[in-house]
Design a binder for these strands. Structure first.
Length: 270
DNA sequence: AAATTCTCCTGAAGGC
DNA sequence: TGCCTTCAGGAGAATT
């Protein structure tokens, strides 16, 4: 499931293959993703050159001449660079053609999205309200602490809220809270500034490490060359219910918070 | 108004 | 072996 590191890895993987290249066509085999793919996408983007390949939160932004393609990988999306004409698999829904090769989106669960906007992408409804990037140099716990004071949701919900900060999905939220010794259920307004600063640092550290490891492959994620990521072996608590906590030897618990699974050590995390 | 629930979809895993 | 059921999960929309 692509979270921020997986999207950044995809960005770095595809950039050298498409930056500066002209889109020669688009093939849409299945337009029904999270939102329908615009029917005239091919006409809109063909002939335009890729001027930048960026990432904002978990959105990939392909800046073309006079517009931006917004790609979201949803739950199960992945991007591959392939020779043009490579036979598509069952869930290969979209190809962006670049002459001899193509950028192919595979997304079995179809929660992803491919959208086109000619407006300033920073003002797009999906982008406009996004919180700060954890990997930006100026990111610290201070802003989060201020926001948290006015709310009382569990801290895990807070850090997964894209308006508060972006890119922290379920896996990394669990890991960061363990690393910071904070209980995922703790009301977010009952955590000190010092602990938010530490938590922010842990989020940065874990996301950076995951990027270095090629991301976390749990089910479908593949790097652009088809290799899986290797961060899964570094996960300390996620998916380890019943196993011993590496900190105290106690048992890692799993509980549901919202609709998602939390994994934590009730002894080390308070 | 903040917080929770619902919804999209299908692969994987577990039970019998 | 294989069918059936349950679960997971990002994020906007709907609901409380």
């Amino acid at each position: 499931m692509p979270e921020l590191p997986e999207v950044e890895i995809s960005r770095r993987g595809i950039e050298p293959h498409i930056l500066g290249r002209e889109v020669t066509g688009v093939v849409v085999r299945q337009p029904r993703l999270r939102w329908p793919i615009p029917p005239d996408l091919g006409r809109q983007v063909s002939g335009r050159r890729v001027e930048a390949v960026e990432r904002r939160a978990k959105y990939l932004l392909l800046r073309l001449q006079q517009g931006t393609l917004i790609i979201h990988l949803g739950m199960s999306g992945s991007l591959r660079i392939l020779p043009s004409g490579t036979p598509p698999g069952r869930h290969d829904h979209v190809d962006l053609l670049f002459g001899d090769h193509c950028l192919r989106l595979r997304d079995p669960r179809r929660f992803g999205a491919v959208l086109w906007t000619r407006e300033a992408v920073e003002e797009h409804p999906l982008i406009r309200h996004l919180g700060p990037e954890p990997l930006a140099p100026e990111f610290s716990g201070d802003g989060i602490y201020q926001l948290a004071r006015a709310r009382r949701v569990p801290v895990k919900n807070l850090i997964m809220d894209g308006r508060v900060m972006v890119g922290v999905g379920n896996i990394y939220a669990n890991e960061a809270l363990f690393a910071a010794g904070i209980h995922p259920h703790r009301p977010c307004n009952r955590i000190s500034l010092a602990r938010y600063r530490d938590l922010s640092e842990q989020i940065r550290r874990i996301l950076s490490e995951a990027i270095r490891q090629g991301g976390t492959t749990l089910r479908d994620f593949r790097q652009e060359d088809g290799r899986p990521g290797y961060f899964a072996r570094r996960l300390t608590v996620y998916g380890r219910a019943g196993e011993p906590c590496p900190g105290c030897g106690g048992t890692i618990r799993q509980r549901h918070i919202g609709q998602r699974s939390s994994y934590f050590c009730p002894h080390c995390q308070r």
